[in-house]
């Protein structure tokens, strides 16, 4: 069979690598890549960011976050964690969630909140933090959980009748934890090729080639083009850790709406660490409104960044109107950073 073929790279890290290495210029002419929703910064709904801002603004709270989330606006444009820090909030940048445990133990008189974002790659580290916190009985640490699951989003896109996606490059680091069973299920249910892809330029090119070959032969299989890291079984211990602390939950994604099983929540035994429970209802920061951003269509592969009238003019990384312009991994920011327009 002949193309043109449309593939979606699901993971934002892959979007970033593709543009950073200029791989789109090296692809066969019959191939089009569209950027998927695999960027937790981009898909965290504005109301969760508003919640984070409200918590970080509480007197006495030390609010811990990865650098990625510090400049993500909530529902009010320009309102972010760095701005809050400039106005006096104690917002700290972490590179591993385990640092939050040390912060909490160093400041027993204060409440320490960790903004826990990320896919199934990051969630085990949060789960480990939860286990350690409970084992040590650290009473002043809590988690604002925003973890999301990637396969439900892929299912939504695959099931969308309007979708242009004919094959997926699956996120290799998620598969390193989860293994390939749920991807195989996706292939079986939707009859389209899925290739587990790494993040290096050569690995990505290999994965793209494998996916294209399947399409040309009319096949729909699961391929693993990241075998140096990913095994069919993933990391069972990480998965058990994850399952002992979290359970799947229906959560809203920015741009995609409520996704059945699209997120994680703390299991009952760990609910004591839930920042939503500990702090109860806080005054809302503002109304939830995504403005003119077409991120929902971009995240589903129905529109490209250049289709947006605000792209690069009203909406820039310094003044993002929507999530895909915030993160380096977001489809819009990556395009604006690396491409001439």
């Amino acid at each position: 069979m002949t193309g043109p073929w449309t593939l979606m790279e699901v993971c934002g890290g892959q979007t970033h690598a593709l543009l950073r290495w200029g791989l789109d210029q090296l692809l066969p002419a019959d191939l089009r890549l569209i950027h998927g929703p695999g960027c937790p910064v981009c898909v965290t709904p504005a109301e969760r960011i508003d919640r984070a801002l409200a918590l970080a603004g509480q007197p006495g709270v030390i609010f811990c976050s990865y650098g990625d989330m510090l400049q993500v606006p909530g529902s009010r444009p320009g309102h972010d964690l760095l701005g809050l820090r400039a106005r006096g909030a104690d917002v700290r940048l972490l590179t591993t969630p385990l640092q939050a445990l040390a912060v909490a133990r160093d400041h027993p008189e204060r409440q320490v909140v960790m903004l826990a974002v990320g896919f199934e790659t990051t969630a085990p580290a949060t789960a480990l933090l939860a286990r350690q916190a409970l084992a040590l009985g650290v009473p002043n640490l809590s988690l604002l959980v925003c973890h999301v699951r990637v396969v439900p989003a892929m299912r939504l896109i695959a099931a969308d009748r309007a979708t242009a996606v004919q094959g997926f490059l699956a996120a290799g680091h998620v598969a390193a934890v989860m293994g390939t069973a749920e991807l195989q299920q996706l292939v079986d249910d939707h009859r389209l090729p899925v290739v587990v892809a790494g993040f290096g330029p050569d690995e990505l090119l290999q994965a793209v080639g494998a996916c294209r070959r399947q399409l040309q032969r009319g096949e729909a299989r699961l391929d693993n083009a990241y075998a140096s890291v990913v095994t069919a079984d993933g990391n069972p211990r990480a998965r058990r850790l994850l399952a002992s602390v979290f359970e799947p939950a229906d959560v809203p994604w920015r741009g995609l709406g409520l996704l059945p099983g699209g997120g994680l929540r703390l299991r009952g035994r760990y609910a004591v660490l839930d920042a939503d429970r500990r702090f109860g209802i806080l005054p809302p920061d503002a109304s939830n409104h995504d403005g003119p951003c077409i991120s929902g269509r971009i995240l589903r592969g129905l529109a490209r960044p250049l289709d947006c009238p605000a792209f690069g003019s009203a909406c820039t990384p310094d003044h993002p109107l929507g999530a895909p312009m915030v993160s380096d991994e977001g489809a819009c920011a990556a395009h604006l950073r690396y491409r001439r327009h």
């Binding site: 591993t96 095994t231 990391n235 990480a238």
Partner: peptide, 9 residues
Amino acid sequence: LVHVGLALA
């Protein structure tokens, strides 16, 4: 393979 301070694979 290490992510956020945790070895995963």
